[in-house]
Write a protein that binds this DNA or RNA. Sequence first.
DNA 1: TCGTACACGC
DNA 2: GACGTACGTGTACGAG
Length: 874
Amino acid sequence: MTNKLVLVDGNSIAYRAFFALPLLNNDKGVYTNAVYGFTTMLLKVLEEEKPTHLMVAFDAGKTTFRHDTFKEYKGTRQKTPPELAEQLPIMRDLLNAFRIPYEEVENYEADDIIGTLAVKAAGKGWETKIFTGDKDLLQLVGEHVQVALTRKGITNVDTYDLEALDEKYGLAPEQIIDMKGLMGDSSDNIPGVPGVGEKTALKLLAAHKTVEGVYENLDQVSGKKMKEKLEANEEQALMSKKLATILTEAPIETNVEDLPVQEADQSALAALFNELGFQSLLNRIGAEAETKEDLKDLEVIIPEELTDEVLTEECALVVESLEDNYHHAAIIGAAAANKNGVYYLKPEMLQDPVFQEWAADPEKKKWVFNAKRAVVSLGWEEIKLDGAGFDVQMASYLLDPGASSHDMADIAERKSGLQVQHDEVVYGKGKKQQVPEEEKLSQHLGRKAAALLELKPALENELSENEQLELLIELEMPLSVILGRMEQHGVAIDKGELEDLGKSLTERLDAIEAKIHDLAGTTFNINSPKQLGEILFEKLQLPPIKKTKTGYSTSADVLEKLQDSHEIIPEILLYRQLGKLNSTYIEGLLKAVNDKTGRIHTIFNQALTQTGRLSSTEPNLQNIPIRLEEGRKIRHAFVPTREESVILAADYSQIELRVLAHISQDKNLLHAFQEDMDIHTKTAMDVFGVSADEVDGGMRRTAKAVNFGIVYGISDYGLSQSLGVTRKEAQSFIDKYFESYPGVKDYMDTIVEQARESGYVTTMMNRRRYLPEITSRNFNQRSFAERTAMNTPIQGSAADIIKKAMVDVDAALEESRLEAVMLLQVHDELIFEVSESQADELSELVSRVMESCVELDVPLKVDADYGKTWYDAK
DNA sequence: TCGTACACGC
DNA sequence: GACGTACGTGTACGAG
């Protein structure tokens, strides 16, 4: 077997990694992004290339032999940023731990080391692959030498051999230096011939092979100016070529045989990864995260009897169940921690009336982790939990919704001195998940409870400093109880209705499938984008409009463009639409109906989204179809639990734009809502400069998309996609919008400026979102952060408002004589069930409370309606 | 088991 | 001048 040598251009890869990744740092404030990128690249190389020999070359010192030729060589290069410089020594530690040799040679660049070794290896008939971000190294490509150039990020590379190089540039490797000689290289301050760029250089070399060849045939060069430029810079061109030439005879003692790949020093590597905080890489090398302190230390008492020493007035409480879905999940144990100690409570102790009385007492305050989970999982066992006054998970979420995790173990790691193991480590995952023996379980739960006790005051302090305590105590905590009740109550489903819809869907799908196969002339899986792409773009020869990473795009917008070019297309679109309805909504919802209750019990995630909205899972009841009639029919299956009841839906009209009017104080927008105008028509009037009766359907649709863009923070590109216009046109709509609503423009500018200064934005109720990328050098990251800065206060404040409305409505219902149940929240809409006789009264109450739960400078408007099913509540 | 492509809601 | 562009969830496919 031939040997395979991999040579890595250390400085080049480090630079690439540094600029490609956000400025990460570990818990000690040391920047780690370049090291991280470098490491992932090394791991990938080891895994995929499986080299027999490997080394990393670094540049040494500031000056090299090239400076003798040209003292301004690399003269314009900016100093290595200090954030990167401090990472270079760590990379050497890393290589030592990997047992990968590295080398730097005084007076020479990494390129020269690589070139020399590549030549040595080629002489022995070895295969060599060079990893770099520097195109110069392409000159080393040869029969046995490939060069992998980083493309985007660091692990993504384009590999060049002789053939690929010829294909891309039409050049042989040795001509790379001729190209550099002619066009120069601004990053290395190689002058070249001024006025000659890549295009000209390639043209000249195609005709005359080398720099020397160009000058020998100067009379054949077309263009007077070009000839003059070349003539005037002959010496400079030759010098530039020399500068760009990589030395393949650098004085290096190392032989390629000295560089065999060795086993990494696992313990050194694990120690380094731990220090750097590379959790994911620890997993990848199969090592475990280090433990800060001895896990055996904690004293956990297993009480014989529950006394008021165990269950105190202020007490951390852990209620553990394993399944993600806590509805009807078995509680495997509990723990309490307070000033007296840490206690493990066996599951059967939860049945003790002493526990139940304490749990139900709102005066006995409990500090918990995910209050809703505790309330609902106890609730299913008929145990009432009240007085859950502080939720550590919620606190962590409110402090920084963008934090990498809100796991107990991670929060404890970040914010306390106590070590809590990850659930996955204690219980296992997937099929291997199981309840451990009591000793292990009591330790784990005891640690969680102890950590809660310690975390509560710490996080309370942080919240208080951010003025977010009210948000937690007055809004999210009461809301979690309400949401828990909604989840546990569930939504009744008419299974027969779903089954009937499913039957007719399946029949139609079968017919459409047959038709598609017929039109295609073969049977294939329509649900497979790969197979569908092959049929459409190869067999049927339709023009592929867009590509994805893996092949042809077959997304709806692509297919819509092909609508008229083949009669198979509309059938495929219909097949997709109906297939989605059948698999997700018919089959999916039927599977989600609980056997015991006959209802669907979703789980609202209250600590997930970056804006403060809720999300809904298992199943997601926030994306039930409504826009197309076919799908809307699904809502027929959402029914009240009692025959005599109805479903009532109350939704805020344009809440985000009203919030925008309030926050920005734009006079035009405020006025529009104060006069209760149709906002999309109003926007169309302003953007197109026409009167109300001149606004046609197209103008209103455009205006609506613009408003949508403002609310969701999409870019000119996003708007152009949704309108099917060019980016320029989209941008001009945005410009006109800002001309008409200058207050909105001011707000957008101000909020971005604020975000840059403080690093975060806030909502009306002091929800926060950090935007570190707002100072990024990467245009995309920065633009995204800027749009987020504009959008989050709008969407987040709307989320605040409906959450407040839910708390207020719940209280109002409590006081009223109405027997209504809140079932769902869908971002700007609340769904209830109520007996038909009380429906009008409920409608009036809900609308009133929703409209008055906060006081804005524009009115809030609610539309409410009810009917026998969710479909009819429109 | 995981990543990708696609489609649904707001 | 290119970059690759609201969020969140679920299903199906196909590679490992």
